Amino acid sequence: MTTWRLGDVTVGRLGFGAMRLTDPDQAIAVLRRAVELGVNHLDTAAFYGSANELIRAALTPYPAGLVIATKVGPGTDPERGFYNATTAAELRAQVETNLRQLGVDRLDVVNLRITGDGSLAERFEWLAALRDEGLIRQLGVSNVRLEHVREALAIAPVVCVQNSYAVDRRGSEDEVISFCAERGIAYVPFGSITDASTSAAVDAVAATHHATPQQIRLAWTLHRSPNILAIPGTGSVRHLEENVAAGKLELSAAELASLS
């Protein structure tokens, strides 16, 4: 498994997304197996439900070198339900919730996830202030366009950009990936294997490698650019092992061309 620098730490390019962790027993088994297989980059969020608590239950004391990235912006509240943070106090509360649930004094990476096309400057400035306080080690952005990345970079270092991206759902993301690669910023796609449509090209490559279509989608994602860090999520140990195995698949130039 190849690696990439996530800011000032090195992680394997095949990570794990915690959004699909729901069943406690299965989740703990999956998380522990992931670490056994060398996965050292976890993606989570307080608004995922019980994911943070499951990570804490499964992996504390946390192994050396494990990087846990979380997200703020969206949140849940008993009275309001699901909401998006619009004040410094709300963002601070979300950061503190992640700290408490994960059982840490400082969050490794916090991604500001936004909705809509408006400026992220004020919210990113609030997170940068929390980083300066020592509550956050490094910052990233999520669900953004290229202008948002530029906007954030003018305020503080950005170590990762997390957007929706897949072999058959690319949009204008190739430009963002190239921009990030030129600056050493990790690009962390979500949805690379979920909600995927059937693809004859993917199926053909999968048959050649005796692999699943999901494995080929992951392999293509990792082949796309060396700064891409995949974070497939699953609640199954078997699927986890398949995902990690996909990180070792070598696709030929002809296969990559057929998929592109």
Rank of each mutant, 00 (worst) to 15 (best):
N40Y: 06
A204F: 12
V39P: 07
T234L: 03
V244R: 00
V104N: 13
L112S: 10
L218M: 14
E182G: 01
F179C: 05
A121G: 04
E173Q: 11
T70C: 07
P189C: 06
A245P: 06
S192H: 06
V158E: 01
V35A: 03
F82H: 11
T208C: 10
G191K: 02
A152K: 03
G49M: 02
A186N: 08
P157Q: 05
E147Y: 05
W220P: 04
L21K: 01
V144D: 01
A128H: 03
D195C: 00
H148Q: 05
L130E: 00
H41Q: 14
G12D: 11
S225T: 00
T70P: 07
D132T: 09
T194I: 07
S260N: 13
V104Y: 08
T60V: 15
A200W: 11
P24H: 10
M19Y: 01
R217V: 12
L112V: 13
I193W: 05
V109I: 15
L127H: 07
H41M: 14
S142K: 02
S258A: 14
G49L: 03
T97C: 07
A257G: 03
S192K: 02
V158F: 05
N163D: 04
I136R: 04
W220R: 03
E241N: 01
Q101W: 04
I177C: 07
A57F: 09
I114P: 05
F179G: 07
G103R: 07
L222V: 11
G191C: 03
P24E: 12
V141P: 09
R123D: 03
D77R: 08
A58T: 11
A196F: 07
G140A: 01
P213F: 15
T97S: 14
L153V: 05
N52W: 08
H239C: 04
G184M: 02
S192R: 02
Y187Q: 02
D43G: 05
V167W: 01
N98Q: 14
A219L: 13
T3I: 02
N52Q: 15
I68C: 06
S260A: 10
A196R: 14
A206S: 12
F82R: 14
A257N: 08
R150C: 06
N40C: 09
I28T: 14
A46R: 09
